[in-house]
Design a protein around this nucleic acid. Structure first.
Length: 602
RNA sequence: GGGGACGUAGUUCAGUUCUGGUUAGAACGCUGGCCUGUCACGCCGGAGGUCGCGAGUUCGAUUCUCGUCGUCCCCGCCA
């Protein structure tokens, strides 16, 4: 008898059994119903003569009971069941005994009195507990991703992702947008991110590129008269990864003919409002506030400001210049600026050691250091206090609205660095001071971007958005003389300090497009070979058009309340671009390389 | 390409660090037994470790040194 128990149990076939209900729906009013449930063993509680199993599927958990008085053979069989085994149980819904209900479970008023059980599959000892309180390391969870995804709280992220995608599709369908698929094997283009390349076997030595976005194809669809296009589409960029960046990611890509900026922005603004009402049951601020790029940089030091809290950057260059602090004066003399933030009522909370830690945030972003002032009742407590006289102290306090108890952080550097450092400090201090309320969602449009900016590394101007973005009409004449002064008809949608979307009105005039290429330092020959098909298309009746792309993964991550987009991508890659589950990328057979005419040269 | 943190049982960690020493611990999981109302069931017993990998120093390295690999966060990069 004992031997029989230690044998590996046989796996039963499903046979004629049909699932009647899932594990999340049965309630008091289903009592006496004969049911067949199927799912995984979440937990077992073997009391000897009475065995409880929590059976789990994606809809929930139902307790099933094996009682020798119901069926002795079935009860005997149930002793060997283990966590994560796959079961089918046939039985009857019965009410739980008085006082034995489980209030934590939606199905907690009932249980299943099992008459028969089928073991549909066994399992090896799981590498981590699906129903465990402690998390395994992320690489282990990625290697056994199918177990991680079995966890209810993880699964709910994907239910939400699906609901958001469905809603967006319906919203756009109702407004006349057509989903059109565009090529995944396409042409490598200069500008922008590094391409993923795919060698061609039929055309040896030639390469396709995976699209960084369907940008050019959607413009061609506008030329074709499709009028309103959208696509939930995978995009690929061969750049280093981050918590909010994967090499392949999903965009809601959209393009409209015969429109201006407002028409495109209205579509997205309406979509976000309806989406947050439906999925999050919250109203977003309406209309969504606008900031110009200049205002965003001046007030927040970044083009994607987090508006969930204030603590704006304040320019104190003129006051700093009147101090005797050589570092400040030196920076001002070389065209730099001094900016500051005032952390309200924080002076007492930060020791010298903590301020040293905080200054690392500034130096990590390129600043040479951080100057701080603790405002006391009638004096400054600060390493730089001695460089300021009473007048300049008063002026600075006044400029920053600083009152006793406040902490002032200052950075002096070239504008790009001062802004970057203080922008990072602003986020750091908001986190430390817990200024960001749970569940808050602050949208903002950022507009009036420059069309081009000078790239020191490349030694030329590059497109801030992309090379197909239309310049503001009255700035057109500046294009070749003062490229940096031309404004773009571009707009970004920012949510909680994260850029979740961006778009522009496109160039639909071939000669303007050629001029922009010229301003970018792209020769007519190169423009012809790389973008000839676009120029040709623009010459064949391109309508005015514009559009936008939404970073779907980032949006879902924010709506799901998770910190990394890996949490809402079913099979994501690690920060070094590998997949622990499939072990990709991997070497390939030399035969495959030969067919492609490739050889490896490391 | 650069900076930081981490790597010890199946898992999450402690310890070993400054002070190298022969049996490296806990919890959960796994496993054998007992148990008729559990729901993080309980009780008694058991198994389970190249201390990421390599080299060096040393009589002796999980511990010290150097290198390397992996994971995560950040800068650069990402139109």
């Amino acid at each position: 008898m004992k031997n029989e128990q230690t044998q590996i149990p046989t796996i039963d076939s499903l046979g004629e059994w049909k699932r009647t209900d899932n594990c999340g729906t049965l309630r008091q009013h289903h009592v006496d119903r004969d049911v067949i449930l199927m799912g995984w063993v979440n937990r077992r509680r073997d009391l000897g003569n009475l065995i409880f199993i929590d059976l789990r599927d994606r809809e929930g958990i139902t307790q099933v009971v094996f009682d020798p008085q119901v069926n002795a053979a079935t009860h005997e069989k149930a002793h060997v069941l283990r966590n994560e085994w796959v079961l089918a149980v046939k039985g009857t819904v019965v009410p739980r005994l008085e006082g034995r209900e489980n209030r934590d479970l939606p199905t907690g008023e009932i249980e299943i009195k099992v008459e028969e059980v089928k073991i549909l599959n066994l399992t090896e000892t799981p590498p981590f507990q699906v129903d465990g309180a402690v998390d395994a390391s992320e690489s282990l969870r990625l290697k056994y991703r199918y177990l991680e995804l079995r966890r209810p709280q993880i699964f709910e992220n994907f239910r939400k992702r699906h609901a958001i995608a469905s809603f967006i599709r319906a919203y756009l369908d109702e407004r006349g947008f057509m989903e059109v698929e565009t090529p995944i094997l396409t042409k490598s283009t200069p500008e922008g991110a590094r391409d993923y390349l795919v060698p061609s076997r039929i055309n040896r030595g030639m390469f396709y590129a995976l699209p960084q976005s369907p940008q050019l194809f959607k413009q061609l669809l506008m030329v074709a008269g499709f009028d309103r296009y959208y696509q939930v589409v995978r995009c690929f960029r061969d750049e280093d990864l981050r918590a909010d960046r994967q090499p392949e990611f999903t965009q809601v890509d959209l393009e409209m003919a015969f429109v201006d900026e407002k028409a495109v922005m209205d579509i997205f603004e309406g979509m976000m409002g309806a989406l947050f009402t439906r999925i999050m049951d919250t109203k977003i601020e309406s209309p969504i506030p606008h900031l110009t790029y200049q205002d965003a940089m001046n007030r927040f030091g970044t083009d994607r400001p987090d508006l969930r809290f204030a603590m704006e950057l304040v320019n104190i260059t003129d006051i700093a210049d009147q101090s005797d602090f050589k570092v400040f004066k030196g920076v001002v003399a070389t065209g730099g600026m001094v900016k500051a933030i005032c952390v309200k009522n924080a002076a007492a909370n930060y020791s010298r050691k903590m301020l040293d830690e905080i200054s690392l945030v500034a130096t990590a972003n390129g600043a040479k250091g951080l100057a701080w002032i603790k405002i006391a009742a009638d004096k400054w407590q600060s390493p730089v206090a001695k460089f300021f006289n009473d007048e300049t102290k008063l002026a600075l306090n006044g400029r920053l609205d600083a009152v006793p108890g406040d902490l002032i952080l200052m950075v002096a550097d070239q504008p790009a660095i001062a802004n970057a450092a203080l922008s990072a400090l602003r986020l750091e201090m908001a986190q430390r001071e817990e200024l960001i309320k749970e569940g808050e969602h602050a949208f903002v449009w950022v507009t009036d971007f420059p069309l081009l900016e000078y790239d020191d590394a490349a030694g030329r101007f590059v497109a801030v958005h992309h090379p197909f973005t239309a310049p503001v009409e009255e700035d057109l004449e500046l294009l070749l003389e003062h490229p940096g002064k031309v404004r773009a008809r571009a707009y970004d949608l920012v949510l909680n300090g994260s850029e979740i979307g961006g778009g522009s009105i496109r160039i639909h005039n071939a000669s303007i497009q050629e001029t922009v290429f010229e301003a970018l330092g792209i020769s007519p020959e190169e423009a012809r070979s790389k973008f000839g098909f676009l120029i040709d298309a623009l010459k064949h009746g391109a309508p005015p058009h514009g559009g936008m792309a939404l970073g779907f993964d980032r949006l879902v991550a924010i709506m799901a309340g998770v910190n990394s987009i890996r949490e809402i991508i079913a099979f994501p890659k690690t920060t070094s671009g590998t997949c622990p589950l499939t072990v990709a990328p991997s070497p390939v057979d030399p035969k495959q390389l030969k067919e492609l005419g490739l050889s490896i040269n490391l």
